[in-house]
Design a protein around this nucleic acid. Sequence first.
DNA 1: CAGGCATACTCGTATAGACGAGTGGGCAAG
DNA 2: CTTGCCCACTCGTCTATACGAGTATGCCTG
Lengths: 261, 261
Amino acid sequence: MTSLPSLLGDLDPTSDRAVFRQIADQLREAIDRGRFKEGEKLPSEAELVEHYGVSRMTVRNSFSVLQGEGLVHAEHGKGVFVRPRPPVRRLASDRFARRHREQGKSAFIVEADAAGSHPQVDSLEVKEEKASQDISTRLGSVRRVLARRRRYLLDGRPVEFATSYLPLDIARGTQIAEPNPGPGGIYGRLEELGHQLDHFEEEIRARMPSPTEVKTLRLASGVPVIHLIRTAYDTEGRAVEVCDTVMAADAYVLSYQLPAT
Amino acid sequence: MTSLPSLLGDLDPTSDRAVFRQIADQLREAIDRGRFKEGEKLPSEAELVEHYGVSRMTVRNSFSVLQGEGLVHAEHGKGVFVRPRPPVRRLASDRFARRHREQGKSAFIVEADAAGSHPQVDSLEVKEEKASQDISTRLGSVRRVLARRRRYLLDGRPVEFATSYLPLDIARGTQIAEPNPGPGGIYGRLEELGHQLDHFEEEIRARMPSPTEVKTLRLASGVPVIHLIRTAYDTEGRAVEVCDTVMAADAYVLSYQLPAT
DNA sequence: CAGGCATACTCGTATAGACGAGTGGGCAAG
DNA sequence: CTTGCCCACTCGTCTATACGAGTATGCCTG
């Protein structure tokens, strides 16, 4: 093994920068320069204690800085590792175009298969419930809604959790209320039911996940979520669906195409 | 002052949940329920040490959990406070429509004025430089580019840092290379120069900020950034500008309107 | 050879203490 | 009354220590 000094340098005792920050800086730089590669193990806490001559809590403090930046993650009993950048899923703005409504399979499945990854959908739940204030507003003062919840996984990793809300007068008793909405998904069914889709509106936020989201998406620390709320409007200007999606930010790139009108 | 027990409950020594997590849970719940309001001060470390009968580092550990979630922020010498949600700026997908090109003022200024906040633009830098690999690819194998950097502030708070890159053969010697590009901004100038804009492509990512970004945007810990890369294409299909923008995620909501084609 | 156990190494949690530095209020001197 | 200092309270940094729990490895036993 290469000796630590050759990788990591010394502390500057005259600097007013906190020791744990100096250590974090050195580790960050070493990672940026590729001295530690993706997935590779960093020196253990004990080794860094030895190398820098500081206490263990100080080293741990450095690690927690890097964890907060999403650069590394710790595994109990194993070590601290450079966080690999997972393959990202690109969401194009035309992903709901009618020509993309495949027969039978959902867009997620088709797309993942094409990319060579193994897609899964679980935590399927379809039920009627009371609309939250926000959903009610978006759907135009609806009291109760049909909610369709599902979680998407790529190669076993949860990447997205989505809930669709539809007004009961549209969805109740239709195939939309079934676990499997059939070919073309719920947008296909909506159009068959006479709700010709006109346009979508998407709102995008980014924030740190709640503890619940950390669990359902198995998020590492230092990974934000992208919160996307899409409203689908029919040609009569009525909001016919609201889809609330929380995505692991390290697994997604959203892409939009805008006319310059 | 209300006594802590009435606000915070006790620890469960039989639980296998770590003490610092239990404390974090209780504080989080108290915040969610509005027992501590936005901007309000949480109990001091000493008070929580007293209340729970734990060591100070354990309390600090709880705080660091909440900080990582972006829920609270600490101020040296003052206390730990519930992080107020700043007013957000909504970016609509039609914000570059020609009809929005105001005379003289930039879109940012106009919009902020309308919203009643005090806008500023600083760190203006306009210079020619070598194109990075990524920028070169996006602009179609260009070696050198004109780079326009600027930082946007709302009510004194930096919210966005943006850099526009333009091919030299388009921008050199034009008003685009001046600090003030004139009415309608650089898109106005580009069209005057015969580059009729056709469409934009925007790529959106979210991630934790680098230390540099923390500094320039004065980000609190637990606040991610939205990284937006926009490419402008003219009617001949040529990429005429790439704009790389890093935004404080807690200050923005992006909004897109998509046709259902 | 296979299974299981001991062990060493990893990070996780928690304690107790020390000193430093930023903030704000009150008190004393002018 | 104003100025300036001191002090109490706040969080920031760091040390030293202890034990627990997950992981991997190799040796020992059957």
